[in-house]
Design a protein around this nucleic acid. Structure first.
Length: 603
DNA sequence: CTAGGGTTAG
């Protein structure tokens, strides 16, 4: 390395002999020192410059010591131990020196040390300045210590740094990362638009993203564009993430285009986000295509592809890529195993599920999480191995959660095992579920077993708990880059009902009759039929049929699982209207085409 | 004549 060979000959850098020293003016020598410090690429080199600074008696002059500390504490190659030892020798450290040390500790994740240094600073009578607070707030962010953050916010007020734009950005970010979206927003709203920097937008958008407020995230992104600010990479990654969760494929594609037009190359994070968004918005082939031509892949990239294929029910491909990953020397972690096991799940591959569950524990020595157990319990239950599933639940090192009991209940419904279904339901309700769909599940079980008395008991219980007419289900559909939301019995789009009517006529010709036996409401048959026909998914499909071109695919995102009537209905619609309909429900994708569904009616 | 502040994926 050029740098180090030069440093082995100190006299070339700082003339310590002959006239060199006397001729150079003092300021020049100090500037030379600072210049050298900037050029250091290792602690070893820094030590040599340090030695020369001491030898020349420059330590106490013109920020030499400060520069030594900052170079050592903040560089990629830095060492906090060494930085501390230099820092100790500074007789009268100023706020800059303390700030540097605090930032160094944070960079090296010694967060307690950072706070300690801050206290030391106060103790020495050095006033914190507007550079101190962003650093401290960063420490709070890392520690998720919102209470301390609030305290610091108070001090910022007192000391009058509250109008500093960097301090404000740090506050927005800190509150956001600590999950206090409200406070985060308050700081953001208090800034004048003209003073908001790209960092302010970035912080608030990522705050919304980390809280899962995806629509808000996109709304702010839109506002930012209106102001005329150009989005940067990290914001676009958050936007993609929002698209993933909302199923906004068109917007994701625009964002992809924007990235290609405005950046010279896409890094791993951006590429991984793109793959994820395509996979989870029902465009698996494009996600796969991007994955294949990635130049650099990491654990995350494999993870999104595997879990993406899983929700599309493409288990064999997921297994293949999992194998490739291991061959590449990338270790699977617990999240990737959730992907692999859920691939087994969505395809009903019981043997493979057991195989991977063993591999996870015994080959890769990962502690199974409740999600892994959840996959296996679901797999067993749906294969009819309900007793075995219960044994597994009993053997778990952790308490079973609602997801597990719900899955078991649903398996009992499928296999008509009312006795164990009641057991599962009892456990589920002990976890204080106020989920109307859970009651519907158990009532469906009774209905299937023709136990009408129990059905009505459940109905009464629901009414007592105020769960009737709760409308939890919705369907989102994207038309011309906007997401439209439908809930059951939505009357806000009158056109849709005309369309539905027309669709029903066509469906009748195909031999469809609505399955009203599971509608739990205490209403007459006509009303039941009416309720069923206005399920949100049907409304969304009708809306899309009206407003999109005949050749385009219809994509729907749901927050709950599909009812079997909607499933049958959608299969038929895909034939009658010759449209591909892709529905993402809470669990997975259903790809309807020519009267069949990619899930093979197993879901 | 000094250095330093926000942010990106399962």
């Amino acid at each position: 390395m050029v740098g180090s060979s030069v440093l082995h000959q100190p006299k070339l850098l700082i003339p310590t002999h002959g006239n060199g020293l006397e001729i150079d003016s003092g300021s020049k020598r100090e500037q030379r020192c600072i210049f050298l410090l900037k050029k250091c690429t290792s602690v070893e080199e820094l030590k040599q410059v340090h030695a020369q600074i001491l030898k020349l008696g420059l330590f106490c002059k013109s920020f030499c010591a400060s520069n030594l500390v900052s170079s050592c504490a903040l560089s990629e190659w830095g060492s906090m131990d060494y930085a501390c030892s230099i820092f100790k020798h500074i007789d009268d450290p100023d706020s800059f020196d303390f700030n540097t040390m605090i930032r160094g500790h944070i960079k090296h994740m010694n967060l307690e040390q950072a706070v300690f240094t801050y206290l030391e600073m106060l103790h020495s009578g050095i006033e914190p300045d507007n550079f101190t607070y962003p650093a401290l707030l960063k420490a709070c962010t890392r520690l998720s210590a919102v209470d301390q953050g609030v305290q610091i916010h108070g001090q910022i007020f007192k000391l009058g740094f509250v109008d500093d734009v960097f301090v404000q950005n740090s506050l927005i970010n800190m509150y956001g990362k600590c999950g206090d979206i409200k406070r985060s927003c308050v700081v953001f709203e208090q800034m004048e638009d003209s003073r908001k920097t790209i960092a302010s937008w970035s912080s608030v958008i990522s705050a919304y993203a980390s809280t899962g407020m995806w629509s808000e995230c996109l709304r702010l992104f839109g506002e930012m564009n209106e102001i005329g600010l150009r989005a940067e990479e990290s914001i676009l990654v958050n936007v993609l993430c929002a698209c993933t969760h909302l199923g906004a494929l068109d917007l994701a594609m625009c964002t992809h285009g924007y990235l290609l037009r405005n950046l010279t190359g896409l890094n791993v994070i951006v590429e991984t986000s793109l793959i994820d968004v395509y996979m989870k918005c029902g465009f698996a082939d494009r996600g796969l295509f991007l994955f294949e031509k990635m130049s650099e892949r990491n654990q995350m990239s494999y993870s999104v592809v595997i879990s993406g294929l899983a929700i599309h029910g493409r288990a064999q491909e997921a297994f293949k890529i999992f194998k490739q990953m291991i061959e590449q020397g990338i270790k699977p972690d617990d999240v990737i195993y959730v992907g692999v096991l859920s691939a087994c799940n969505h395809a009903g591959l019981v043997e493979e599920g057991f195989k991977y569950f063993d591999k996870l524990r015994f080959e890769h020595r990962i502690q199974p999480t409740i999600q892994h157990f959840g996959c296996i319990v679901d797999l067993m239950g749906r294969a009819g191995m309900i007793d075995e599933a219960i044994e597994l639940i009993k053997s778990m090192p952790m308490e079973p959660n609602d997801v597990l009991w719900r899955s078991l209940l649903s398996s009992c419904k499928i296999h008509q095992n009312v006795e164990l279904g009641e057991f599962a339901a009892k456990n589920l309700f002990q976890l204080n579920s106020r989920n109307a769909s859970d009651y519907i599940l158990i009532s469906n079980m009774y209905a299937k077993a023709q136990r009408w008395h129990d059905v009505s008991m459940i109905r009464t219980e629901m009414a007592n708990k105020g769960l009737i007419n709760q409308v939890p289900g919705y369907s989102l559909v994207e038309v011309k880059r906007k997401m439209y939301k439908f809930v059951s019995n939505d009357t806000s789009h009158s056109q849709v009902y005309e369309m539905l009517h027309q669709m029903e006529w066509q469906l009748k010709f195909e031999g469809y009759s609505p399955d009203i036996s599971r509608v739990l409401l205490d209403v007459d048959e006509d009303e039941k039929r009416q309720r069923l026909s206005s399920h949100s998914q049907k409304l969304a499909i009708a809306f899309a049929l009206i407003h999109t071109s005949h050749t385009s695919r219809i994509r729907i995102v749901r927050n709950v699982r599909m009812c079997s009537d909607c499933h049958t209905y959608t299969k038929l619609i895909s034939t009658i209207y010759e449209r591909e309909i892709i529905v993402r429900d809470r669990n997975r994708f259903h790809h309807f085409k020519d009267g069949t569904c990619s899930c093979g009616d197993y879901w």
